[in-house]
């Protein structure tokens, strides 16, 4: 399989992530969508690194992305839990005290 196939998979996953973020009402889906986007980027990095044969940059970036994703997921979930405790809901549309 050539590079194009990997990039295509990555682009599709990116699109799915965006759709998940925009369309699903539960905040956990939004987090999942974000993970999808990060993973899509990771596929790209590794694929480009593999086909480009230029040092370790892409793979290293992928590892750091995984680390970032973990960190972000931890913080985001903590915030979501906090919101759930206060609003008794995980729908971001119901947390709309701040507007206009």
């Amino acid at each position: 399989m050539g590079l194009g196939a990997y990039v295509a998979v990555s682009a599709a996953l990116f699109g799915l992530g965006i759709v998940a973020i925009i369309t699903r009402r539960n905040v956990l889906y939004i987090l999942m969508g974000i993970e999808m986007i990060l993973n899509a980027a990771n596929i790209n990095f590794v694929a480009f690194n593999r086909f480009g044969d230029n040092g370790l940059d892409g793979r290293m970036f992928a590892i750091f992305t995984i680390i970032l994703a973990a960190a972000e997921a931890a913080v985001a979930l903590a915030i979501v839990l906090n919101v759930f405790h206060l609003f008794s809901s995980v729908k971001p549309s119901e947390a709309d005290l701040l507007r206009e």
């Binding site: 956990l28 997921a73 995980v90």
Partner: peptide, 20 residues
Amino acid sequence: IYVGGILALLLFGVMLTPPD
């Protein structure tokens, strides 16, 4: 990390919040 960590974290979140 993803399957063992992040997903487990997400599942925790899922379980701590009610099904919708």
